[in-house]
Amino acid sequence: RAAQGRTYGNLGNSHYLLGNFQDAVLAHEQRLLIAKEFGDRAAERRAYCNLGNAYIFLGQFEAAAEHYKRTLQLARQLKDRAVEAQACYSLGNTYTLLQDYERAIDSHLKHLIIAQDLKDRIGEGRACWSLGNAYTALGNHEQAMSFAEKHLEISKEIGDRS
């Protein structure tokens, strides 16, 4: 049964990389079921994240957000800060796709704080870029400018010309 769980996970990832997102969802749902049977929260966390990603490419953004929220809860329970940051970033982008900019800002700010704690300058730069865009969408140009300046500063520092 444990091997079945791992195999469903691998199968889901193969379907995903081939662009078969519906088949990826079916496989990762099986992986999730088996992870729950075993109380394997790390595997459960991975399955939720993989499901969230597949739902993005199926255009089902509400479903993606629900799965990323579970990813975030489990990342916190597992005390994995890098994964927590990644889940916040995914959630922020998903809320942006849903045009829910207040929630997007909330998630991107959480990502920003963790990126700063972890001294992850690339993550920090991406959070600033995302925040600048979300504030622009809300018409808050002063905040947008502030984050755009921060994004520029970090991009120069890390040599990201694009």
Partner: peptide, 27 residues
């Protein structure tokens, strides 16, 4: 204007989706 705002909005998200397309949580 709304279209332009939407286009601005999408650029950071598009970059994220490009990365996401090749990203999987490996067993």
């Amino acid at each position: 204007k709304c279209f332009r705002m939407h286009a601005i909005q999408v650029d950071s998200v598009q970059r994220w989706m490009e990365d996401l397309r090749h990203m999987t949580e490996v067993e």
